[in-house]
């Protein structure tokens, strides 16, 4: 049974990985791949765009160089975050 809650850090991790692997992607497609309701994803996308981790192109969102760096740092903290109760 799918869980009802996910951590914000875990969603950011999924979104960055999906956009890096499959991008450029429109937000609706990201929502499908990340298994999230669109309104919940929109908030995350806006905050990632504001931080400069992803950017909008004609064909959809892509991960920026800053986003790749953030993903690398996030990957190094994944086990720690899981251990402290975050769902990633």
């Amino acid at each position: 049974m799918p869980k009802k809650y996910r951590s914000r850090a875990g969603i950011i991790y999924d979104v960055l990985r999906i956009v890096l692997a499959e991008g450029p992607l429109p937000p609706t497609r990201i929502a499908t791949y990340a298994n999230l309701p669109y309104d919940r994803l929109r908030v995350i996308i806006d905050s990632l765009e504001e931080k400069g981790l992803i950017e909008r192109t004609e064909n959809g969102y892509v991960v920026t160089e800053e986003g790749r760096r953030a993903l690398k740092i996030l990957e190094e903290s994944v086990v720690l975050l899981k251990s402290l109760g975050f769902r990633l």
Binding site: A9, E50, E66, I73, L74, E76, S77, L81, L84, F86
Partner: peptide
């Protein structure tokens, strides 16, 4: 060491909840 890792993660992804966990540690 754990605090430094989590603080950096919180800073780059802009998630305050990770910073709270870092402060807890």
């Amino acid at each position: 060491v754990i605090f430094a890792r989590l603080r950096e993660t919180s800073r780059v992804i802009g998630d305050e909840s990770v910073m709270l966990a870092a402060l807890g540690i």
